[in-house]
């Protein structure tokens, strides 16, 4: 049987396929799957310096037993949802303007301008914001110079600034899928709705957003995951109050040397964020397979 199948497929083709797949499988297996399995096993074991080395759910129990951990997670997830929402609200008009309002050449130029800040690393961008917003920063210099504020105001190190930074960091990942779905939106649908008596707000709600839903969801998933997994922006811009869940994981691995606890946190983050995305997809009636297209 198998000999027949092999001769049918052709030995050359099979060899090629095997050769072609090997690096991919090795790559995935060695660099992604294996370490994850190792981490998963680690998350079910206790830190050797904390006593016995058997299997246990202690690391997971710790997460729910210690309010600081799950509160941090709730806070992180909540802010991530908020950031995703805000990013969408900011990105939709931008994407709409780029695709539907300006001429084709201008739109290409604008898209490039949007991409430009992302050619430098996130760290540089965040420091850029810090230079702008810090107490002795550019913005305060102008504000006091123009007499709008009497003394410089510290604009960094609060949640609002952190959220703004996160929105800025993730905006592109929302704008790009939105631009691509908006490009597929026939202008005449918008005009037809307008012609049938709808105002701009109704058009957005009834025509543009439903059409863009797959793009919105794929953008939202990316933004949500990126925000949830962000470390730099909350830490640098949020400052003293902004404990982010990734920082908890970092602390477990790096500061407390408790890799087992850190691994458990990592998997909890994965599981809980997957749940939130699943919930989001359910609520908006989207299918993952359609969204990732």
């Amino acid at each position: 049987m198998s000999a027949v199948a092999a001769s049918k497929a052709g030995p050359g083709l099979r060899l090629t396929l095997a050769l072609f797949l090997t690096p991919v499988v090795l790559w995935l297996g060695l660099l992604i799957v294996l370490p994850h399995i190792d981490l998963l096993i680690m998350s079910f074991r206790m830190d050797p310096s904390f006593g016995d080395e058997g299997w246990s759910f202690e690391n997971y129990r710790q997460f729910f037993a210690e309010p600081i951990y799950w509160l941090t997670f709730v806070r992180t997830a909540g802010y991530s949802v908020l950031v995703t929402l805000l990013t969408f609200l900011v990105s939709l008009p931008v994407a709409f303007y780029v695709t539907k309002v300006v001429a084709r050449n201008t739109s290409r130029f604008l898209l490039t301008m949007l991409l430009l800040p992302f050619w430098v690393s996130e760290l540089v961008r965040v420091y850029g914001w810090m230079i702008l917003l810090r107490e002795s920063g550019v913005l305060n210099h102008w504000l006091t110079g123009l007499g709008i504020t009497a003394a410089p105001v510290e604009m960094l190190y609060n949640d609002a600034t952190m959220i703004m930074g996160l929105v800025y960091t993730s905006m592109l990942f929302m704008v790009v899928p939105l631009v691509s779905v908006l490009e597929s939106l026939d202008d005449s649908l918008i005009e037809a709705a307008y012609d049938l008596g709808a105002g701009p707000w109704t058009i957005m709600r009834t025509i543009v957003v439903p059409h863009c839903m797959p793009g919105i969801m794929s953008g939202a998933i990316v933004v949500f995951m990126l925000t949830l997994g962000n470390y730099l922006t909350p830490n640098l811009m949020g400052g003293k109050n902004s404990l982010w869940f990734t920082e908890q994981i970092y602390n477990q691995f790096i500061a407390s040397f408790n890799w087992n606890q850190g691994a458990a946190f990592g998997f909890l983050l994965l599981a809980l964020s997957s749940c939130i995305i699943w919930l989001g997809l359910r609520l908006t009636g989207q299918k993952l397979s359609r969204v990732v297209q």
């Binding site: 210690e66 600081i68 951990y69 509160l71 941090t72 109050n241 920082e247 602390n251 407390s256 408790n258």
Partner: peptide
Amino acid sequence: EGKALDRVKAA
């Protein structure tokens, strides 16, 4: 100490 620091940051 790690936990104490987390709590300080989260407060």
